[in-house]
């Protein structure tokens, strides 16, 4: 069966999303990580608009615009400023080396697809085939948070995870009710601002953003 061009667009968006997640996993330059995050936001916003067009759910246009503003412009701008002010460029060698991380990532994708299969069949949304990808993005971001050492790359992992969740909401359902989406967006924004404050506190205290220093409490 020939798919409508919008469904193809949504599938393409999903594929690009997964690709950027893998790119983030392998990227050690922090500036590039932020750019990848911005790309992810752009793709997300485009897919949301496509879902909105096909399903006729007009409130999704609003959330597409919201994610465009927040994830492509505001958050990357804040992160760029932070990176310049704090002068961090490279993440140190991650806990797992990059090829191993990629292999683990592939396994996670397979797992995510297996897990989402029974749910995706129930979904009525046009974009249900992409639920597996959304789940994979969440898991890959999780993996990134675990393996990275610098505070700022952990945070980008965290934000990417939120992207994955947002994509899951879009693809499994037609997006959450507007009031919830606004709330989530507000939380993400405030969270990022608080983290910004936090980076300065960490830097002030430890002279580095390397989280290796934050291991004192573990021994007790």
């Amino acid at each position: 069966m020939q798919l409508a061009w919008t469904s193809q667009l949504i599938d393409l968006g999903a594929a690009v999303l997964l690709l950027t997640s893998f790119a983030m996993l392998s990227q050690r330059r922090i500036l590039s990580l932020v750019n990848l995050y911005a790309w992810q936001g752009a793709v997300l916003s485009m897919s949301t608009a496509a879902v909105a067009y096909t399903s006729g759910q007009h409130h999704l246009y609003l959330s597409a615009a919201l994610s465009l503003i927040l994830k492509v412009i505001v958050l990357p701008w804040i992160l760029h400023r932070l990176i310049r002010r704090l002068n961090v460029r490279w993440d140190t060698e991650p806990l797992l080396n990059i090829p191993t991380t990629m292999l683990v990532g592939i396994l996670l994708v397979v797992f995510a697809f297996a897990l989402s299969q029974p749910i995706a069949q129930l979904s009525t949304s046009i974009a249900r085939s992409t639920l597996g990808i959304a789940m994979a993005v969440v898991m890959l971001s999780f993996l990134m948070m675990i393996t990275r050492r610098k505070a700022i790359s952990q945070v980008i992992g965290f934000l990417a995870m939120e992207n994955g969740l947002f994509f899951a909401a879009i693809s499994a359902t037609h997006g959450m009710p507007m009031i919830v989406e606004l709330g989530v967006a507000l939380d993400v924004l405030v969270g990022t601002l608080i983290l910004g404050v936090f980076f300065f506190q960490i830097r002030e205290q430890f002279d580095s953003l390397d989280l290796q220093h934050l291991e004192k409490l573990k021994e007790e």
Partner: peptide, 20 residues
């Protein structure tokens, strides 16, 4: 203090991931 920043960071990240 160093310990309080570490505690807050842990609180933020773990609860953030959990709540996700």
């Amino acid at each position: 203090t160093a310990a309080s920043i570490e505690a807050a960071w842990k609180y933020f990240i773990l609860c953030g991931v959990g709540i996700a």
